[in-house]
C-alpha cells in the first residue's frame, strides 16, 4: 500500500506552482517561482563589468550565482551572512545553469544571478534554479533552453515527487531520501544531481524518469510566465 503524503498529494503530484516574471524593475531580468510554500525570487544583472579585473575571462563572460535564505524564511531565524550551505548551493546552482547559457559574445563580463528564498518549505534550491532560469531568459541572455528543477524523494519505499518539509523530515521505515535534480528542458541532459539518503541503483533510473515528467510540467509553467510578461 502506497504511503500517504501529509499534504494529501499523490506520489507524483507537484505542489501548486506559481511563476511571475519581471518583479524587480531595476534588474535586467527577474522572476519569482514557488512550489507550494517554498518561494524563491531571482534577479539577473548583466552582462556587466566584472571587478576585480584579474577575474575577467577574455574568451567569455562568466556566470556568477548567489543563493541565500532571508532571515525570516525559516522557523529558526537565520543569522544574516552566507553559510556553508548557501555557498554550496550557490555553486551547484551556477553549475546547473551554465550549460545552457552562451556567454562567448560577452568577453570580460559577468552575469550576476541573485537568488533569495522568501519562504522555505523544502525544495528551495530547486525553486531557486527555476526562478533563476526564468530571470536569465527574461534578461535576454543567449540560452539554448530553459533549465527545470525538481526534487524527488523516497518515503520508506515509495518515491515521491517534489519533497516538502514534512517529507524531508520523515522518520519512518527506510528514512527519507532527497534527490534534487535539474535538467535542460526537453532533453536528456542533467545539470544538477545531489542526493541524501538510501536508494538502489535501479531506482535511480526510475527517479530520473519521474524527474523528466515533473520537469515537463515545470517547463509549461515557466513558458507561460515568460509569455505573459509581454502583454
Amino acid at each position: 500500500m502506497a504511503i500517504k503524503r501529509e499534504s494529501g498529494r499523490s506520489l507524483t503530484e507537484i505542489r501548486p506552482m506559481m511563476a511571475k516574471v519581471g518583479v524587480i524593475p531595476n534588474a535586467d531580468g527577474s522572476a519569482i517561482f514557488a512550489f507550494g510554500d517554498t518561494v524563491a525570487i531571482a534577479a539577473v544583472y548583466g552582462p556587466r563589468q566584472l571587478h576585480p579585473q584579474h577575474m575577467q575571462d577574455p574568451s567569455t563572460g562568466i556566470l556568477r550565482c548567489n543563493y541565500d535564505l532571508l532571515s525570516f524564511s525559516v522557523s529558526d531565524r537565520k543569522k544574516p551572512g552566507p553559510s556553508r550551505r548557501s555557498q554550496e548551493i550557490s555553486k551547484v546552482t551556477e553549475w546547473a545553469l551554465s550549460p545552457v547559457v552562451d556567454l562567448e559574445g560577452f568577453p570580460n563580463t559577468v552575469i550576476d544571478v541573485q537568488i533569495y528564498i522568501l519562504q522555505a518549505d523544502a525544495g528551495t534550491r530547486t525553486a531557486g534554479i527555476n526562478a533563476a532560469s526564468l530571470a536569465l531568459a527574461h534578461a535576454g541572455i543567449p540560452m539554448k533552453n530553459l533549465v527545470c528543477s525538481i526534487s524527488v524523494g523516497k518515503l520508506d519505499k515509495d518515491l515521491v515527487v517534489d519533497v516538502d518539509k514534512a517529507e524531508e523530515d520523515f522518520k519512518g521505515g527506510e528514512g527519507p531520501t532527497d534527490f534534487p535534480i535539474a535538467k535542460i528542458a526537453n532533453t536528456d541532459e542533467y545539470t544538477l544531481l545531489q542526493l541524501d539518503g538510501k536508494i538502489q541503483p535501479e531506482v535511480v533510473k526510475k527517479i530520473l524518469k519521474l524527474a523528466d515528467k515533473a520537469c515537463e510540467e515545470i517547463y509549461e509553467v515557466q513558458k507561460k510566465a515568460l509569455k505573459e510578461v509581454v502583454q
Partner: peptide, 11 residues
C-alpha cells in the same frame, strides 16, 4: 533591527 541591502534590489 537589521537590514541587508541585497544585490537583487539595485545594480
Amino acid at each position: 533591527v537589521s537590514s541587508d541591502f541585497l544585490p537583487l534590489a539595485s545594480p
